[in-house]
Simulated assay, not measured.
Amino acid sequence: MGAAMIAHRQQANAENWMFPPSGGWTSSQVKGLDLPFDWELVDGVIVARGQTKFWHNDVRDGLLEALKAQRVQPLKVTAEQCVLVDEYNTPKPDIIVFDPTGLDYFELECIPLDKLSLIVEVVSPGSRQDDRVRKPALFAAHKVPCYWRVELDRDQKLAVHEYWLNADTLAYFPAPMHPVHHDKLVTRLPFPIEIDLNELLGF
């Protein structure tokens, strides 16, 4: 029992982060971990987030600005903030929209999943499987109402795949009016939004 308790209390640090305990790291064990790269906790394992290209970050920032400009109270919009799925999973979506009601502004680290209204992932070569399969399944299972997957098509134009949650099956389905947005994104969830996608690309 003593060894188990020591393992449970073990904190991740710069020397041991790649060697999780038998049950995996928990969010409390990796809290405050400072590493020379961006990372997230996936099934108890600390996973490095890959380098992204300029277009990915520029599109993410453009979407962030547009969502912030059009948001309705009390919703907030932020980027690269961890969300608390459970003690073994704290992913960092590219963008989230959430309701901050009841949250502590100065102490908040990971956003509780039940506060989220929308998750946006901009797909890069290293994140295709995660953004197309694993993360949508994870977020739908935890009742996040809306999910956008943003990709470059073959003509290097943006395509935004919009998904809504089926509350009965806990799975996403394509938004009925515009499942894929080209040129302009227009939707009513999680609030009325209109974004010129072509303006987000290019210097």
Rank of each mutant, 00 (worst) to 15 (best):
I195D: 05
D94W: 08
W148D: 02
Q10T: 13
E107V: 01
V123H: 07
K92Y: 02
D34P: 02
S22R: 11
A12H: 06
G44T: 04
L103G: 02
A4V: 00
S28D: 11
D130V: 01
L152N: 14
F37D: 14
A66Q: 05
D99N: 15
V160D: 05
L64C: 11
S124Y: 03
C146L: 02
L165C: 07
T169M: 11
V72K: 08
V97H: 06
D168N: 15
P145R: 11
K115R: 15
L152R: 15
K184M: 10
V122A: 07
P136R: 02
L138V: 06
H142Q: 15
L138I: 05
W39D: 12
L41M: 07
P179S: 11
R71S: 13
E162G: 01
K31P: 00
Y88E: 09
L152Y: 03
L118R: 11
A175R: 14
L116P: 03
D168V: 04
A3M: 13
P136W: 01
K143F: 00
R128C: 05
R149D: 02
A14S: 14
D86W: 00
G44Q: 06
G24N: 09
D34K: 15
W25T: 03
V186R: 10
Q51L: 12
P190D: 08
V160Q: 07
L33G: 06
L75H: 13
T26A: 06
L165D: 06
A141V: 00
E80I: 00
A14W: 06
V59T: 05
L63P: 08
K143N: 04
H181E: 10
P125V: 07
I96W: 05
A4Y: 01
P145Y: 08
L170Q: 11
A3C: 05
H181K: 10
F106T: 13
V47P: 01
Q11D: 03
P136M: 00
R71K: 15
G126F: 04
S28M: 02
M5V: 12
R132N: 04
V180T: 14
E65L: 11
C146F: 12
L41Q: 09
Q70I: 10
K115Q: 14
R128Q: 13
I119Q: 06
V47Y: 01
N89T: 06
E151A: 12
K184N: 05
E40L: 05
M177R: 13
H142T: 02
W148A: 04
R132G: 00
S124T: 01
L158C: 08
A14C: 06
N16T: 01
F106E: 15
V120E: 10
Y88W: 14
D43S: 03
A175Q: 12
L185M: 14
A171T: 12
L165V: 02
G23E: 11
D58K: 13
P190W: 03
E194S: 15
T78R: 10
G62N: 02
C146T: 10
R49G: 00
L63Q: 12
L116D: 03
V30R: 01
P125T: 10
T90R: 14
K53V: 01
D196R: 09
L63H: 06
S124V: 04
L170D: 04
T26F: 03
N16I: 00
